[in-house]
Amino acid sequence: MSAAYSKRFETVFLCCHEKGPNMSLGAAAKYLKKSKSFVKKWVRHYSIHKNVDDLSNRGKIRKTTSSEDNVFVNLFNQNPSLTLDKAQRKLSKKEIKISKITIRNRLCKYDIKHRSTLLKPLLTDVQVKKRIEENLNRDWDNVIFTYEASFWLSTSTKRVWCVKGKKVIQRTVKHPGKIHVWGCFNRRGFGKLLIFKQNLDAKFMKEMYQRALIPSANK
């Protein structure tokens, strides 16, 4: 018998059992080194239910079963970047109709929270205002914007649902295939689009300007 149950039985014996000493609530509490409310609670419980067991189905009624909890916990484990809206729709197809708040609460129960990397804006409001003032009267017919970007065959997600301290592993290759793209445009339209694989150094940049930038400017 556990220590908790032992104290409950002692309470009943001391206060209301026919072979007990029939102590008062205060005296029994002092003898057991428990609070008077503890003694009163179990004396009353015994008088109603004739036992000292915990009642079943106590507290707030759960909206999901344990098996349903496992379904959407596994759902987020398989797809950590899943949003609550998409999760709710996926669960609805499985005939599990619950609110986004309930989904979040269940995830928090398993210490699964939406953790993200620190985001920093490229330009502050002051910097944006300053650049607008500097370029407000510029002749944009004589300006060409250029930009280069890289595209990988496999990418990683930086914001996922996971337990604190757990490292989420995403399968990828060590050196994924990638291509680089360079393009340009101005207010009159788009220029040439150049696709290449080699690293962009000074020598190739000069070649790129000759092959793409100058012809686009002339056009």
Score class of each variant (00 low, 15 high):
2 S>E: 10
2 S>M: 08
2 S>L: 03
3 A>M: 12
4 A>W: 10
4 A>G: 09
6 S>R: 15
10 E>W: 12
10 E>I: 01
11 T>I: 00
11 T>F: 03
12 V>G: 07
16 C>S: 12
18 E>K: 09
19 K>E: 13
20 G>M: 12
20 G>F: 02
21 P>N: 10
23 M>Y: 11
24 S>N: 03
25 L>T: 04
28 A>I: 03
28 A>R: 05
30 K>E: 14
34 K>V: 14
41 K>A: 03
43 V>I: 07
44 R>Y: 04
44 R>T: 08
50 K>Q: 14
52 V>E: 04
60 K>V: 13
65 T>A: 01
69 D>I: 07
74 N>L: 12
74 N>H: 12
74 N>I: 04
77 N>K: 14
80 P>C: 07
80 P>L: 05
81 S>A: 13
81 S>C: 07
83 T>E: 12
89 R>W: 10
90 K>G: 06
94 K>D: 11
102 T>P: 01
102 T>M: 09
103 I>Y: 02
105 N>R: 15
106 R>F: 05
114 H>Q: 14
116 S>P: 04
118 L>N: 10
124 T>C: 06
125 D>C: 10
132 I>C: 02
133 E>T: 07
133 E>F: 07
137 N>T: 05
141 D>P: 06
142 N>G: 04
146 T>R: 01
147 Y>E: 13
151 F>S: 01
155 T>Y: 10
157 T>N: 10
161 W>S: 04
163 V>C: 05
163 V>G: 02
165 G>M: 02
168 V>Q: 03
175 H>L: 14
183 G>K: 03
187 R>Q: 04
187 R>T: 08
188 R>I: 08
193 L>D: 04
194 L>P: 05
196 F>M: 06
197 K>E: 15
197 K>Q: 13
201 D>V: 06
203 K>N: 09
203 K>H: 12
203 K>A: 04
203 K>C: 02
204 F>V: 11
207 E>H: 04
208 M>V: 08
219 K>S: 15
